[in-house]
Nucleic acid binder design. Structure first.
Length: 312
DNA sequence: GGTATGGACATGGCATACAA
DNA sequence: TTGTATGCCATGTCCATACC
């Protein structure tokens, strides 16, 4: 990598880090192993609960990524990667590079019903675009058993994700994106850093009235801005009309970020043991037991004899 | 029929208040 | 002083329904 004047800058650290994270694709994580099911019945049962591994493997992937980054010699002398948990982002480069580069690592288990990782951090945290989001898609190497294997990595700018999210959701008065309150005086566990989404729940009459209020803010009144002035206006809506907190707000699956969408498509198209990831996803979430049984026998060789062998 | 959206439920960390 | 309950925040899965 070419560095101007021999100095490592924030964007260099991020670019290098992104390259290394992407190189993890295709590798196993030797952190845990699900043993091969001994019978088709056990395999079917396992297929329905393997997604429960998702949160745990997600965490294992997060701190193994830090170790992996620190094994790379290019960073030597400039600083070290550290995991902050809790904290944002969960991986930062501590050293003599400023602003401090960081990765927010999100693990994605593509056999689950959706990408459940959320990205709720305020745009205001990305003023210098020093934080990138790394999505790591993983599966057990044998689909329902084996070691976790990284099948693909997508690294995108955190700022771009936050902007895509806010532009996608924010649509006053129907939907409001709200920045965290000023909670700097609270104890650390009660401080807010996340934005939230609110959906209008009032009557059509109230909605018409709310629309007139938004119109009175001028031509750019519907455009999202993270400023206190704009949020003072938004809070008027929240006080006057009923809204509900949207608990699905900012799910990575629903943000509609172009690079993330392209990554989703790519991951679903990958072929693993004779079927695409999307086909496995459909089969395991919607397929009948006999279909799952058949696929596991055809593609993974799990059949009745195995169980019989075991009994002997 | 597939996708998007709305909603419910489960789990857990952490600081703090309060009771034993 | 120690243990327990509580408030708030956060992250995850699953399912029903609306929509195209």
């Amino acid at each position: 990598m070419h560095l101007r004047g021999g100095e490592m800058q924030t964007r260099d650290v991020l670019r290098l880090g992104a390259q290394h994270l992407q190189s993890m694709a295709g590798h196993d994580f030797d952190v845990l192993t699900v043993t091969r099911p001994v019978s088709p019945e056990a395999a079917v049962n396992l297929s329905k609960i393997v997604s429960k591994l998702s949160p745990m493997v997600g965490n294992l992937i997060e701190f193994n990524s830090v170790e992996f980054l620190n094994e790379q010699s290019e960073f030597a002398g400039y600083g070290e990667w550290h995991r902050q948990d809790p904290g944002f982002p969960d991986t930062i480069f501590q050293g003599n590079v400023f602003p401090t580069p960081g990765f927010e690592i999100k693990a994605w288990f593509p056999l689950a019903t959706e990408i459940t990782a959320r990205f709720k951090d305020s745009q205001r945290h990305f003023a210098d675009d020093q934080t990138y989001v790394a999505m790591l898609a993983w599966l057990p190497e044998m689909v329902i058993y084996g070691k976790p294997k990284i099948i693909g990595v997508c690294v995108v700018s955190g700022l771009s994700v936050a902007q895509a999210r806010d532009n996608h959701y924010h649509n006053p008065p129907d939907y409001l994106v709200l920045e965290p309150e000023d909670t700097s005086l609270r104890t650390v566990n009660l401080q807010q850093t996340n934005t939230n989404g609110f959906k209008f729940q009032g009557t059509p009459e109230q909605f018409a009235e709310a629309k007139r209020l938004v119109a009175s803010w001028g031509l750019n009144g519907h455009l999202y801005q993270p400023t206190p002035e704009y949020h003072a206006l938004l809070r008027q809506l929240l006080q006057r009309y009923p809204y509900r907190l949207d608990t699905n707000y900012a799910k990575m699956d629903r943000i509609v970020h172009p690079e993330i969408e392209a990554f989703k498509t790519w991951v679903y198209q990958q072929t693993i043991h004779g079927m695409t990831v999307l086909q496995w996803n459909r089969l395991l979430s919607k397929g009948a037991d006999w279909q799952i049984r058949q696929a596991l026998e055809t593609h993974l060789g799990i059949r009745e004899e195995d169980a019989e062998d075991l009994l002997i």
